[in-house]
Design a protein around this nucleic acid. Structure first.
Length: 502
DNA sequence: ATGTTC
């Protein structure tokens, strides 16, 4: 039992309430053994001050009465850059770009293969060499034409596939037709991809000449990874059977986002919000600038929504390519395999619904039966993928659509040590860990830089230290909070075989 | 998280 933060009121063993002067319903799903970070509670209370900003903005502009209708914090919530990671916030007549986080559509992709752990284990050393080449030594040659890049940004993976051939050399020609009812957010149709004209035209000499570029197929940094795992334990045999998660089955998991594109979209939002802020109205002390959903901001919102949609489409498409790259490595070293998408789920997005908008920052949808009506998961609830920290187990759960979290679950174990602080554990401890868990990185202290600059972002040792297991909470109590709190039920536990860190 | 370097 951890000492209770005096600002949180415990309702029962699994739920707390965050009282606030604006009477916004604000609940936290967390068991008594989950440590809660006071600095993150500070941030949540500061975010709730946006209730006052919205009132002032509506009054100053004569716009519709905007308000916060609900706040929820997931069991892994921790301090972010202004707004906690693990925040779900629902607004009415307002949109808060900052409540999505910088990395637009950061999320998870999980594929179930026809291989078993016994098939893969003897091949791990060879697979490590192969993946080092495929991900970091120029082996990643994913050829796209400017027209295909534009199609991906404007209409997502479905739009990309409509462009015809799939010339992603060396990665097979498999398309993603099987994925459309297994992707939470398959596409964000946008009117334009003008915000990313430079990237679209970057490497191609002509509109239809397909070339590789330095962005597509990159993993990213921080807690992002591509990992081979096996089903180590089944918690819900019927659901696990339906999901294809038999014990010993090898799965591949990608955790990645929109790389630089989401940041650029957020820069667009920041500029537009400042430019459209009413003259004479003081900017909010908490730094959170809302778009009011009225005619006045419609042109600015349109520009932002296009850039946001472009970045979101890129992120899901890039996860598709990351999975293709891992499949190519597996096929080369372990023989023919099938790999079927289980689910692609976002962590950082917003969901408009009439006058209301649900925003998730570092939280994942955990809808119930109704959310996946007609799809393959209708009998079970939405798949929820909770990645473990480096070396730790990950979990697949099924959502219950709990309104107390706005049908949301957590996106990991949650940091224990802030990113900026030195993580506990020295070099020797990290060396031992890296040897044990076969972490493939382009920058390995035993094997100096193998990546060409510009072809890949190097995994800096400093970053690996920040991602070491001891920098994170235990995932067990976090997942148990979701189960006991009624948010989602564990289906299976996945343990790592080999991790590729960006 | 990003992309990289005082």
């Amino acid at each position: 039992m951890h000492r209770q933060d005096h600002r949180l009121e415990r309702l029962d063993d699994h739920w707390l309430r965050l009282p606030n002067p604006w009477d916004v319903p604000a609940l936290v799903c967390a068991g008594t053994d989950v440590p809660l970070e006071p600095a993150a509670v500070d941030e949540a209370l500061a975010l709730l001050e946006t209730a006052a900003s919205l009132e002032a903005l509506s009054a100053a502009t004569g716009g519709p009465p905007a308000r916060i209708t609900r706040l929820a914090l997931t069991p892994d919530f921790h301090k972010g850059a202004g707004i906690p990671i693990g925040t779900v916030i629902e607004t009415e007549h307002a949109l808060l770009p900052q409540a999505v986080g910088n990395d637009v559509n950061c999320g998870m992709r999980l594929e179930v293969t026809t291989l078993t752990a016994d098939d893969v284990r003897p091949r791990l050393p060879a697979l490590e060499r192969r993946l080092r080449h495929l991900f970091f030594e120029g082996g990643r040659r994913i050829a796209l034409s400017p027209a295909q890049r534009e199609a991906l940004l404007r209409d997502g993976v479905p739009g990309l596939l409509l462009t015809g051939a799939a010339p992603w050399a060396g990665l097979g020609d498999r398309d993603a037709d099987d994925s459309l009812d297994r992707v939470h957010a398959p596409a964000f149709p946008t009117g334009t991809a003008e915000a990313f004209a430079d990237w679209i035209g970057s490497a191609g000499a002509t509109r239809h000449e397909a070339t590789h570029d330095s962005v597509i197929g990159g993993i990213g940094g921080g807690n992002h990874f591509v990992e081979l795992q096996y089903v180590a334990r089944v918690h819900d045999p019927a659901a696990a059977h339906a999901f294809g998660l038999a014990p010993g089955t090898v799965v591949l998991m990608a955790h990645s986002g929109s790389l630089s594109l989401g940041h650029q979209a957020n820069g667009t939002a920041r500029d537009l919000l400042r430019a459209t802020w009413p003259a004479g109205l003081p900017r909010p002390a908490n730094g959170v600038l809302p778009f009011l959903l009225d005619e006045r901001t419609a042109p600015a919102r349109r520009r932002y929504l296009d850039a946001f949609g472009n970045a979101a489409n890129f992120a899901a498409g890039n996860r598709f390519f990351l999975a293709l790259t891992m499949r190519a490595g597996l096929a080369a070293e372990c023989g023919d395999l099938e790999a079927r998408l289980l689910y692609d789920a976002p962590h950082n997005l917003f969901w408009p619904d009439g006058d209301r908008v649900v925003h998730r920052k570092g939280a994942t949808p955990a809808g119930g039966h109704a959310a996946v009506r007609g799809g393959p998961y209708a009998p079970w609830g939405e798949p929820v993928i909770v990645p473990g920290s480096m070396g730790a187990a990950s979990y697949v759960l099924r959502g219950h659509g709990d309104p107390r979290t706005l049908a949301s679950a957590c996106h990991g174990a949650g940091r224990r040590v802030p990113r900026g602080a030195a993580a506990r554990g020295g070099d020797a401890e990290l060396d031992a860990f890296l040897a044990e868990f076969r972490v493939v990185t382009p920058l390995d202290h035993r094997d100096p830089v193998v990546a060409r600059r510009g072809d890949v972002m190097a995994a800096w040792r400093r970053d690996l230290n920040q991602e070491a297991p001891w920098a994170y909470k235990d995932v067990g109590p976090v997942v148990e909070s979701l189960r006991a709190g009624g948010v989602a039920a564990p289906v299976a536990e996945l343990r790592p075989l080999l991790t590729v860190k960006g």
